[in-house]
């Protein structure tokens, strides 16, 4: 299986652990990711409210750069995934808009035919393309005993509802259950993590984070699994700030789903980028799935 790959800026910096674990997991599953040559930032969430055409052109440039031999583009970050998919759809829906965007791209000698590239999130690829049998065939150590709370956030399932239920998504739940983890029902799994609100209004952002953490605690989760660098960063890095703001005492490990999936595949902690998380995760894992962890260290 071969896909074009758009890592996005976060994977180069704050979520290097995501980048490493993606690479390791995909290698283990025989998925070849071909990084888009000379890709640029997707503009995140803000650019669209400043200048629509520039924002669209910045994103479409990446689509235009996708290797002509490949038709599927994997984006592991929620914001990148949504931006790329949104621009592709908007260009397909409004030919006049597509012409404008392409006029902008033409300045750089590029052109993008809407619909040529199908933008997909990594979870979707693992769930649908690799599938249950493919995943389970690779499992070395079952994660039985570990209670995970899959966290989807808002951008991956909305507004496009073509690959999972936008209100109560299940694809990551299923994926994790295939490797033996106990998935807890978790009412806020598609709620917002606050995004960049931490920079604008602490009170709002912390309340959103508190809800997620409390909900996972109530559900009995040992660990929250993220599929977006921003969500992971917010929940992990601001957890102590939330604690001091509300006087709470959350100690919820926040990991990327690929890191935990990789443990089931018997990959090493180093390969999976463990060690950079802020809330300690290893003690919990050692307690819940000691055999898995022992195998991962060697």
């Amino acid at each position: 299986m071969k896909y074009a790959f758009y890592p996005g800026c976060s994977l180069e910096a704050s979520s290097a652990a995501y980048a490493r674990s993606i690479e390791a997991v995909c290698r283990a599953l025989g998925i070849e990711l071909v990084e888009v040559d000379d890709w640029n930032c997707c503009g995140a969430t803000e650019y669209h409210s400043l200048h629509r055409l520039t924002a669209a052109a910045v994103i479409a440039r990446n689509l235009a750069l996708v290797d002509q031999q490949l038709t599927q583009l994997v984006a592991p970050c929620a914001a990148c995934f949504l931006n790329l998919k949104k621009v592709d759809h908007q260009m397909a829906d409004e030919p006049a808009w597509a012409d404008k965007v392409n006029a902008a791209l033409a300045a750089g000698g590029l052109h993008y035919q809407p619909g040529r590239v199908k933008v997909r999130h990594l979870v979707e690829v693992l769930h649908s393309d690799v599938g249950k049998e493919g995943i389970q065939a690779r499992v070395k150590k079952s994660l039985a005993g570990l209670k995970v709370a899959p966290y989807y956030g808002c951008q991956i399932v909305r507004p496009f509802k073509d690959w999972d239920n936008p209100e109560y998504p299940m694809k990551l739940d299923e994926l994790m259950s295939w490797v033996g983890a106990e998935v807890v029902p978790y009412p806020t799994k598609a709620a917002c993590c606050g995004g960049h609100m931490t920079q604008i209004s602490e009170a709002q952002a912390y309340e959103l984070l508190r809800r997620l953490l409390q909900s996972a605690v109530d559900a009995g989760a040992d660990v929250i699994l993220c599929m977006c660098p921003m969500c992971q960063l917010n929940l992990d890095a601001y957890q102590s700030a939330v604690n001091s703001y509300f006087g709470t005492n959350y100690r919820m490990p926040i990991l990327f789903f690929t890191q935990v999936l990789g443990l089931a595949f018997g990959l090493s902690l180093k390969e999976l980028g463990f060690g950079s998380e802020i809330v300690a995760a290893l003690p919990v894992l050692r307690q819940k799935v000691p055999a898995v962890l022992a195998a991962a260290k060697s």
Partner: peptide, 8 residues
């Protein structure tokens, strides 16, 4: 919009 058990 939703019925939830996530209390606030």
């Amino acid at each position: 919009a939703e019925v939830t058990n996530a209390d606030r």
